[in-house]
């Protein structure tokens, strides 16, 4: 890496920060409880829209795992999500009706909040349908993980998206508010992931799982990316540049070992494929607020209309983090 390329990265990073600063004008504060954030709290950052059904379990899950405060951007919900969140004592809420797509799929808003409130904290940036699973998550909290990462001198922690799906048509079992989504969507693909190295930003580009298998078999290069780096010890200068797939400075993307060893990593269980998804896919088709002109949603819609079953004979039923680690989807690294 020459000085020129480093400088170019720096400029790019500044540009992203600038964008984030400008987009902050789109956010209006609904409930600002950031004064309650403790100096060593782990913080969750979320951008969402119309998630009233999923929110209660989401908040419950992360509270149980030791998240101290939630910082949430509500992008024009009209299903009561906003009112619900505004009443929660550990949520600081901003709202905007601006375009999700023009805010680079919410990343600009996220970057602004991270810059403003995340500095010096461990920050977890997730969607409402992403559930962070990490080594020993059944007995140790997220702060325990963060403390260990601190002692080990690690600044960012990778967690691959694992798409979870039900057996049978995905709209067969309705999801009730407050229910653990993995009671319904309890299956996943264990061994069909492909990895490419991104030379420019040094992150890994992971694809595969049921989405590649069912929705993109003929255009695998367009299958969605599954690599994510949701947990970061945030510093003011950091930015996410493409969803939470990668960051700048590039060093943060090196969440993998290149010399044969395994770094510690987790998974984000993705509860996307529940009954509400069929409607959502249809809606997003007209909203066109998603990545690459929503081509992903076009593919979902077309396939789900005909054959809404992602399950196959070799699907694995989710049992816990140890299973994911044995299957090689995540690793304890040297955390014991």
């Amino acid at each position: 890496m020459g000085a020129l390329s480093s400088y170019r990265m720096r400029l790019e990073r500044k540009l992203w920060k600038l964008r984030a600063r400008r987009r902050r004008l789109q956010l209006s504060s609904v409930a600002d409880r950031t004064a309650r954030i403790g100096p060593s709290d782990a913080l969750a950052f979320v951008v969402l829209r119309n998630e009233a059904v999923r929110l209660p379990y989401f908040l419950d899950y992360y509270r149980r795992h030791g998240i101290g405060h939630f910082l949430i951007v509500d992008n024009g919900s009209d299903d009561g999500s906003r009112e619900f969140m505004a009443d929660q004592p550990d949520i600081s809420l901003w709202s905007t009706r601006a375009s999700y797509r023009k805010a680079h799929f919410g990343i600009d808003w996220l970057n602004w909040l991270l810059m403003r409130y995340g500095h010096g904290h461990w920050t977890l940036s997730v969607d409402v349908d992403e559930f962070f699973v990490y080594p020993f998550c059944d007995t140790r909290s997220i702060p325990a993980l963060c403390d260990w990462l601190d002692t080990a001198g690690i600044r960012s922690f990778g967690a691959m998206l694992v798409d979870m799906y039900p057996k049978g048509p995905i709209d067969a079992a309705p999801y009730r508010q407050g229910q653990n989504p993995f009671e319904i969507a309890s299956w996943f693909d264990s061994g069909n992931y492909t990895i490419h190295r991104n030379g420019k930003y040094r992150n890994l580009w992971i694809q595969g799982g049921p989405r590649a298998r069912v929705f993109f078999p003929d255009r695998p290069e367009r299958a969605p990316a599954l690599n994510k780096i949701p947990l970061v010890r945030w510093q003011r200068g950091f930015v996410y540049i493409s969803s939470t797939h990668m960051l700048l400075p590039r060093g943060l993307n090196l969440v993998y070992d290149e010399w044969g060893g395994e770094k510690a990593s987790g998974c984000l269980l993705h509860a996307k494929f529940l009954d509400c998804f069929v409607d959502k896919a249809a809606e997003e088709l007209t909203r066109r607020q998603h990545y690459a002109g929503g081509h992903e949603y076009r593919a979902y819609h077309a396939t789900l209309r005909d054959n809404p079953d992602l399950w196959c004979k070799w699907s694995e039923k989710y049992m816990g983090w140890r299973q994911l680690e044995i299957l090689g989807l995540m690793s304890k690294g040297n955390w014991a």
Binding site: G260, G261, E262, K263, G328
Partner: peptide
């Protein structure tokens, strides 16, 4: 595990 890893495994934190 941290230094040698599992042979033949390619994943998000071992590449």
């Amino acid at each position: 595990r941290r230094t040698r890893g599992r042979a033949g495994l390619y994943m998000q934190s071992r590449f």
